[in-house]
Amino acid sequence: MKYIILIVLLLSTFLLFFEGLKNDPKLIPSNLISKKIPKFKLPSLDNRSFEDSDLRTKDLKLINFFASWCPPCKVEHSNLIKLSQRFKIFGIAKKDTEKNIETWFSQMGNPYSKIGFDHDGMVSINWGVYGLPETFIIDKEQKIIYRHVGAITEKDMKKIKLILDKNK
């Protein structure tokens, strides 16, 4: 009997660690999933303003937190441009300047329908953003349904497209 208890106990611990090995400890789930988008109001690239009401449209959209000083943001740029052909992508630039963004876009194109400037990073905090870039998918009811952390690679594209198609 005691041997059985011992073996069951050890094997379950083993399995626990084994499963634990598969997880990436650095990936943190968003606390905002299936919640309404937070309110915000930011100065925008076109010298007007970008606020949460701009997202109140009856379609699926993406919101991307980025910065021109962030190297992985440049990696995902071409993929964002591909996505922007089918979906609206809004951008929030963290601690960035108009000049830097415009130089960047003149070289690589602009996937964003609208860009807001989060100069002090507080809007990013309201969205629970912890590293750039981060991409949120927002459904027709202004609810956040998915968050992707880090650059969107080809592999991530498939997953994101799947989610977008499912919620269409």
């Binding site: 943190i28 789930p29 968003s30 606390n31 905090i125 309201n126 969205w127 629970g128």
Partner: peptide, 9 residues
């Protein structure tokens, strides 16, 4: 305030 935005982690 921070917990609501960033979760348990």
């Amino acid at each position: 305030f921070v917990h609501e935005r960033y979760g348990d982690f």
